[in-house]
């Protein structure tokens, strides 16, 4: 191919297209570039090449993410867990705002208090999150988004219960409460994924 070759763009395409397809894609771009060069001149060919590369990045990147997401259990689980965690935070913020109103306290907040302020309840909360994580890992089959929705639902319900204590200083305690679900979820996911890996062998 004669003319300027946008090295960075080609490197990006190589990365996105994967090793098998990138050589053919480069060849196709070279072929089309030469064709446009003959018909419209160098400026038109260069313009075409830049436009084509720019237009190709988004679909290739999307496909790359999709295939990685589908192929790797760990990535799928991590996305599900992070997605669920975000929903926990949102649910907890909403529940915290709700619990600041005196009329809204019992009986919901009694359960939450028991869960968070007694050692047994704390262990129970941890267990619930671990079980939720394990459930996500088990559900992570082909329907990755469904499993993300599942963890979101479980963690939103549990997270909302945990966060809606009657304490007026709910916001002061945000930090450690929200630090709890994620490692527990990941621990559950990790346990199930490891068990699956061992079982496959």
């Amino acid at each position: 191919m004669s003319g300027p070759r946008p090295r960075l763009a080609f490197a990006l395409l190589r990365l996105l297209a994967g090793s098998a397809a990138s050589a053919a894609l480069e060849g196709d771009l070279n072929e089309r570039y030469a064709h446009t060069l003959q018909r419209g001149g160098k400026a038109a060919a260069t313009m075409w090449l830049r436009r084509e590369i720019l237009r190709s990045i988004a679909p290739l990147a999307r496909e790359r993410c999709r295939s990685m997401y589908a192929a790797h259990d760990a990535l799928r689980i991590a996305v599900a867990a992070v997605f669920g965690y975000v929903v926990v935070v949102l649910g907890a913020v909403a529940a915290a705002a709700f619990s600041l109103r005196p009329a809204a306290m019992p009986p919901f907040s009694l359960v939450a208090s028991a869960a968070m302020y007694s050692p047994l309840g704390f262990a129970g909360a941890v267990l619930v999150f671990v079980v939720a994580g394990a459930a996500v890992a088990l559900a992570c089959g082909r329907g990755a988004f469904r499993s993300a929705a599942l963890v979101a639902l479980i963690t939103a319900v549990v997270g909302a219960a945990v966060a809606s204590t009657p304490s007026g200083s709910v916001f002061a305690e945000f930090g450690w409460r929200f630090a709890l679900p994620l490692p527990c979820l990941l621990a559950g996911c990790l346990a199930v994924t490891s068990a699956r890996t061992v079982a496959r062998r």
Binding site: L13, A17, G18, A21, L25, D28, L29, R32, E52, I53, R55, S56, I57, A58, P59, L60, R62, E63, R66, S67
Partner: peptide, 11 residues
């Protein structure tokens, strides 16, 4: 775009 065709072919 060629990229869109390649992405679809991969899939």
């Amino acid at each position: 775009s060629l990229g869109a065709v390649y992405a679809t072919l991969e899939r």
